[in-house]
């Protein structure tokens, strides 16, 4: 399991895709997407990602939450993109009964990620560094940041390698990747 972290548009996705292509050695790959395509901005971002993945042999699976339930239908090589969206989907629910807030989701998401990891040969996870802007947010956002932070630490502790991306350049902050 490899965790790829970095700021916005730092080349995380492209690095993660290329990495999984190498690790999977031609075996089928699943792109497990967590982003809901509700807004125009999200649709544009998704379109850009889809265009880049063309010809790279990823099968797309959209799963906004409960990712462990996707484990059975994923290939053995999975790119999970991305943790911040997954945490947001699990924590903030806009259902038919209105808005619901589930602050304590990070342990369950961690279990989901671990169960997905067990059912795969290679799992590459993309996350985002949202932790260094020095702002104090409202209570819900603070809960979100700490939930994502805890989840990232736990996944990193179990990962074989952790990569920090800056301006498209990977820095190995844990382990090494052989492929």
């Amino acid at each position: 399991m490899v965790l790829v972290v970095g700021g916005a548009s730092s080349g995380k996705s492209e690095y993660a895709e290329t990495l999984l292509m190498k690790l999977s050695k031609g075996a089928p790959k699943t792109y497990l997407a967590t982003m809901e395509s509700s807004s125009d901005a999200a649709k544009t971002r998704i379109k850009n990602h889809v265009r880049r993945r063309e010809g790279r042999g990823f099968d797309l699976l959209e799963q906004e939450k409960n990712i462990s339930s996707a484990a059975d239908i994923c290939h053995k090589n999975v790119l999970l993109e991305c943790l911040p969206t997954l945490v947001s989907n699990e924590m903030f629910e806009n259902g038919p009964d209105g808005f619901k807030f589930h602050p304590e989701v990070s342990d369950r998401i961690f279990e989901d990620v671990m169960s997905l990891n067990e059912s795969t040969d290679n799992l590459v996870i993309v996350s985002n560094d949202v932790f260094s802007d020095g702002k104090v947010y409202d209570e819900m956002t603070e809960k979100y940041i700490s939930g994502l932070g805890e989840l990232s630490c736990k996944i990193a502790a179990r990962a074989d390698a952790v990569v920090y991306m800056t301006a498209g350049l990977p820095e190995m902050i844990k382990g090494e990747i052989r492929c």
Binding site: G7, F131, S132
Partner: peptide
């Protein structure tokens, strides 16, 4: 201490002063 300087420059003057002093 947490890193606090990586976001957008705050519009609020006191927040900006805090980031810079930190």
């Amino acid at each position: 201490a947490s890193e606090v300087g990586c976001g957008i420059i705050p519009v609020d003057e006191s927040e900006n002063t805090f980031r810079e002093e930190a």
